[in-house]
Design a protein around this nucleic acid. Structure first.
Length: 604
RNA sequence: GCCGGUGUAGCUCAGCUGGUAGAGCAACUGAUUUGUAAUCAGUAGGUCGGGGGUUCAAGUCCCUUCACCGGCUCCA
């Protein structure tokens, strides 16, 4: 065995560790490096090493499972003591001590029945065994620590060096909300020091971009403890940013033949019974009573649009009919899931419902997908699409679901658009395409969604008159591009690290007059900029020039312009361009042209 | 909702084993009128998240509640 080999890939592409490989295996060796296969082995073994360390520090610990996940690994276990962030350092230290002992990692197998007997005192191991079908199970042993495990593992602890335990968490046994909660520790591991360092740097970068931190620094939004959690307040800068986004998208909707509508915030509970929300979504709804009648605050906007559609008889000539609304919705999200602007209890969706004939579905879905594409490109997001199918809690026949799901698949296939399947992830009334965007530092977020719905039109007896004068049922396509303004602005803030593109920046230009003598000129510049719709402010407080420039830069304003004697005399500006990080001089008229061009970039 | 953690001036934080609060920045006032990332000086700011308890004495200990943070489950 070569020094550097930690496992093999067999013909089917499965990873086999050195402990399991047969003598004359015709397998491809896996070297100790950062390949996905090698990392899988390294991380899994690091999880075991962590378990061994935990067992030494907390002898009462019992272990459940310790798999490899996206960026690292975790191990779930039960322990009498409370484990906090500080304890991670102790565990890491113990892990390093264990490495020095250079234990080999050995494997042996047992018949299932013997394993059941061997672990009869350990209910968590029993739980693991109950999830395994095979008659034979494997045990890995390092020093005096052994664990029921499928592998793969590195040959020896001496291969483990570059790891870090990142967080402690609680996790339900088997992911079941009603089951016991175990302690989970997450960690990361790499084959070399540099990769670990890069990963930790990325975490720092994510922290630096955190929209909650930037939101406070830039004066975008706030929350108020007394007012209630999950209820955002938009501060002037944030409201401006949001307003610009709304305007931009409003124009885009009008260009695409959408019609603005608006429904009420609260509807009688019977409406929600008809729609199925009461039964399927009731636990997330805020209900109240008015004049002895039960009402529900809307968690979605569909009903309003349906009732507006039904207000007058519709002809096939009216279809597709596209209603859109910046719909404020309220959802009782569990307290523990609230997270800045990314998960709140009151939010505004850029929601639309397209009423169309079944044969128009594919076209409409594609148009929405193209709409999404142009918005994502505008903000420089990559994205992927996922088709989510019928969930457990759902309304409507399987046949209808299949029809709708096929419609979505066909639309994407017709343009060779790639997608993956999220089994059981659909809305209760129909399947959907979820759009997952990838931000500047590689994180994925779900925002936009397209949902095909045959069920609500049925329940509300929505119809149109066809060419042959018969009554037909339209299909509803629910869709959102941004998802919600709250979540999208949170993501945008992190994507741009607070340096928003000019066309949505809440404050676009700060004019810094060097002295009082230049104030009149600065004011003239400001009013001319305002006249073309540019948000400009003057920084004329009695502070040093350097400090005023520093403060302007900290606000991440796209342009800081400095004006003194020279500029007043030449009717020019000294520009600091935040995007290009350049400093240059322009006549004011030229600068105005530059601003107008930048404003125009926000058109889709 | 569940597990673990945190909560001191607008913000970032200090306050040892209980002896009734402190810094920097921000704010305000004055001086300074500045050429590209923090001018100097002074003033004012806190029922230590809320409520209850233990104690001669609580920011510090206990209970409870609210909010936030890291996750789980859920989700735009």
């Amino acid at each position: 065995m070569s020094e550097n080999i930690i496992g093999y890939l067999d013909k089917e592409g499965r990873i086999i560790d050195t402990q399991s490989a047969p003598e004359n295996c015709e397998c491809k060796p896996i070297a100790y490096d950062n390949s996905p296969e090698a990392l899988e082995i390294i991380r899994h073994s690091t999880a075991h090493l962590m378990a061994q360390a935990i067992k030494e520090l907390y002898p009462s610990a019992k272990f459940f499972v310790g798999p490899v996940v996206d960026e690292g690994f975790y191990y779930d276990f039960r322990v009498d003591e409370k484990i906090g962030e500080e304890d991670l350092k102790r565990i890491e230290k113990k892990m390093k001590e264990l490495i020095k002992k250079k234990y080999a990692i050995e494997k042996y197998t047992l018949p299932r029945s013997e394993a059941l007997e061997k672990f009869k005192e350990d209910d968590l191991k029993q739980a693991v065994l109950s999830r395994i079908d095979s008659d034979e199970v494997s045990i890995y042993k390092q020093g005096d620590f052994e664990d029921l495990c499928r592998g793969p593992h590195v040959p020896s602890l001496r291969f483990l060096h570059h790891f870090k335990l990142t967080r402690v968490a609680g996790a339900y046994l088997g992911g079941d909300e009603n089951a016991e909660m175990l302690t989970r520790i997450y960690g990361v591991a790499f084959a070399d020091k540099e990769s670990l360092k890069n990963y930790l740097t990325m975490l720092e970068e994510a922290k630096r971009r955190d929209h909650r931190k930037l939101g406070a620094e830039l004066g975008l939004f706030m929350f108020n403890e007394e007012a209630g959690s999950g209820l955002p307040f938009w501060l002037p800068k944030g409201a401006k940013l949001r307003y610009k986004l709304e305007q931009l998208l409003h124009k885009a909707h009008l260009d695409r033949d959408y019609l603005p509508v608006r429904g009420p915030e609260i509807l009688k509970a019977d409406m929600w019974r008809t729609s199925g929300h009461y039964a399927c979504y009731g636990e997330n709804m805020y209900l109240t009573e008015i004049d002895e009648q039960e009402y529900g605050i809307k968690p979605m906007n569909c009903i309003g649009h349906i009732l507006i559609f039904k207000q007058t008889p519709k002809s096939y000539r009216d279809l597709p009919l596209r209603f859109y609304e910046y719909g404020v919705v309220h959802r009782h999200e569990k307290s523990g899931v609230l997270h800045g602007l990314l998960r709140v209890r009151e939010f505004t969706q850029d929601d639309a419902h397209i009423f169309c004939r079944p044969d128009q579905i594919a076209d409409e879905v594609l148009q929405v997908v193209e709409f999404v594409d142009s918005v994502m490109k505008l903000f420089g997001f990559e994205y992927s699409m996922e088709i989510a199918t019928k969930p457990d809690k759902a309304i409507g026949d399987d046949a209808v679901w299949e029809l709708a799901t096929d419609g979505l698949k066909q639309a994407l296939k017709s343009r060779n658009l790639p997608y993956t399947i999220d089994e059981g992830g659909g809305a209760f009334y129909g399947p959907k395409i979820d759009i997952k965007i990838t931000d500047a530092i590689g994180r994925k977020w779900q925002c936009g969604t397209v949902q095909v719905d045959f069920n609500l039109p049925e329940r509300f007896e929505v119809e149109y008159v066809a060419e042959d004068n018969s009554r037909r049922r339209p299909v509803m396509i629910h869709r959102a591009i941004l998802g919600s303004f709250e979540r999208f602005i949170g993501i945008l803030t992190e994507h741009y690290a607070g340096e928003f593109p000019f066309f949505i920046a809440p404050l676009q230009v700060i004019v810094v007059p060097i002295g009082d003598a230049h104030l009149a000129y600065a004011e003239e510049l400001r009013s001319r900029m305002r006249a073309i719709g540019v948000d400009a402010e003057i920084s004329s407080k009695n502070e040093s020039l350097n400090k005023r420039i520093r403060n302007a830069e900290k606000q991440r304003v796209p342009y800081v312009i400095v004006v003194g004697d020279e500029e007043v005399n030449n009717r020019s500006v000294a520009v600091r361009n935040r995007r290009t990080r350049e400093q240059y001089n322009l006549s004011f008229d030229q600068f105005m042209v530059e601003l107008a061009n930048q404003l125009h970039e926000g058109t889709i």
